[in-house]
Computed example of a mutant assay.
Amino acid sequence: MAATAVSATNLFVADYSGNITTLNLSEQNGSYTLEKTHENDGCAPNPSWLTIDAGRGLLYCMNEGLAENSNGSLASFIISTDGSLKTVQNTTTPSGPVSGIIYGEPAGQRGIALAHYGGSAVSTWKLENNGSFTENEEFFYYLDQPGPVADRQDAPHEHEAITDPTGQYILVPDLGADVVRVFSWEQESLALKTLESLKAAAGSGPRHAAFYTPSGLPGSTTYFYLVAELASTVTSYAVTYLPDNKGLSFKELSSQPTTGPYTLHRTNAPAEIHISPDNRFVVISNRNDSSFSLPQSNGTIIESDSLSTFALSPDSGELTFHQLWAAGGSFPRHFSISATGNLVAVGLQNDQSVVVLERDVVSGLIGEPVGRVNVGGNVTAVVWDQERALGGLGD
């Protein structure tokens, strides 16, 4: 008899217990198995974010350093074919790094920009192809007075670093200062140049963001979606590229709750946002909304926060509410969508677990869990190692 084909891929998970965990997700005849295969504590004590350099087989991890008066750190790893990690370097950074993005010329000098929530800073590091790196720049920010939400806006809190679709600009939402900082960068030195920021609504608390180009071509019609953690909103902007690399101009189109038309009984704190691989939908994770009650196999009921899906309009950039669905548990701080779009891996911070949900690539609707694993610490990030997928886990 012919052997049944088995497809598999790895995921990497960061959690506050100090580990990066490798998960293997395999599929056979429509049945999935999700299991832990490796652990690495080379980003301890508080891994907060993972960035993969797929073309070079490297993974970068940010350690937030949550202890009082603690610095953070940046660590790099070589990804082995079996999903295990080999440490290359671990270096101290300003406190509180919670996000990182690789920028620069693909075949030339490249760097990684870090957003430091606790340190009120942006730092950049020059990268070598072997995974080693050196510090390049540090920018620290201050507030003259606390923002409208004083307990969360006592200082600038840089929460994410992303690049625009052309790769010309780095954008950093600042939850404490209610702005999105914008930088250009110099090709040889990778030095950042501060440009005019996007000012968000006072007290809104910008957290994460995503760009959308309907044509898929960098530099064409572009839209920007900003998730505000404190206001629980997603705001849509039309983006114009200024001449001579002088920055970006933003025209606000609309703003709406990240949970769409649903009225919540608890304060929602939206977290992550991603555009689907087919460029048709945007997905946002919602924490603390407790929108769903999920029956368990042992007869108990657990509360679940949610994932919301909005349809994207290629003509206007407007968002149309599409679905509110159970995230699988408590506090979906981070999630990522597989390259084929048919699976969503959700990092449930308070449940200390990862759940993988099926997703219909035609309708864009998220469905039932196909796997769940407890990792032993509050989950902060989960990413797919798509470059090493064995068979792809496609549709």
Rank of each mutant, 00 (worst) to 15 (best):
T267A: 14
V227S: 04
S313V: 02
L312T: 08
L264E: 11
P314E: 10
N298S: 14
P257L: 04
T320P: 06
T263L: 13
A231I: 03
E229N: 07
T259F: 09
Y225M: 11
W325V: 09
A327Y: 02
P270K: 13
H274E: 04
V234F: 01
V227K: 09
H274R: 15
Q323H: 10
G260V: 00
T258Y: 10
A327F: 06
G247E: 05
S306H: 08
I284H: 12
L294T: 11
E252A: 10
A311R: 14
L312Y: 00
T259D: 11
E318V: 01
S306E: 04
L248K: 07
T235W: 03
S236K: 06
R287F: 02
P261Q: 10
Y262M: 11
D244Y: 14
L307A: 08
I273A: 07
L294R: 10
E229S: 10
P257V: 03
Q323S: 09
P295W: 02
A326N: 12
A238L: 06
S293H: 14
W325G: 00
T240M: 02
S308L: 10
L319R: 10
L248Q: 06
F292Q: 12
R280M: 11
P314H: 13
L264M: 15
H274P: 02
F281M: 10
T233Y: 00
G260M: 07
Y262S: 12
T300K: 13
S291Y: 07
V282S: 09
V239H: 02
E252L: 13
F331G: 00
N279K: 08
K251Q: 10
S308I: 08
T235K: 15
N288P: 12
P214S: 12
S249L: 15
S232L: 02
Y241K: 00
L312H: 06
E252Y: 01
D289W: 04
E252C: 11
L230C: 06
D305W: 13
E303W: 07
L217W: 06
F310R: 13
S215W: 04
F281Y: 14
F281S: 03
E272M: 08
L294F: 00
K246Y: 05
F321D: 01
S255H: 06
Y225F: 11
P243Q: 10
A228C: 12
I302K: 14
V283D: 06
T309F: 01
A327K: 08
Y241S: 03
S330Q: 12
T240H: 13
N245C: 04
N268G: 07
L264N: 05
V234P: 00
Q256E: 06
S290L: 14
S330F: 12
F310C: 09
E252D: 11
A271E: 05
D315V: 12
A269Q: 09
I273F: 01
Y241D: 02
L226W: 09
T300W: 04
I302D: 09
S249I: 01
D289L: 07
D244W: 04
S254F: 03
Q296Y: 03
Y237V: 03
S220Y: 07
P295V: 02
K246W: 00
D315S: 15
T309S: 11
T309L: 10
N288I: 01
S330R: 10
D289C: 04
P314Q: 12
F250S: 02
S236N: 06
K246I: 04
L217K: 14
S232T: 05
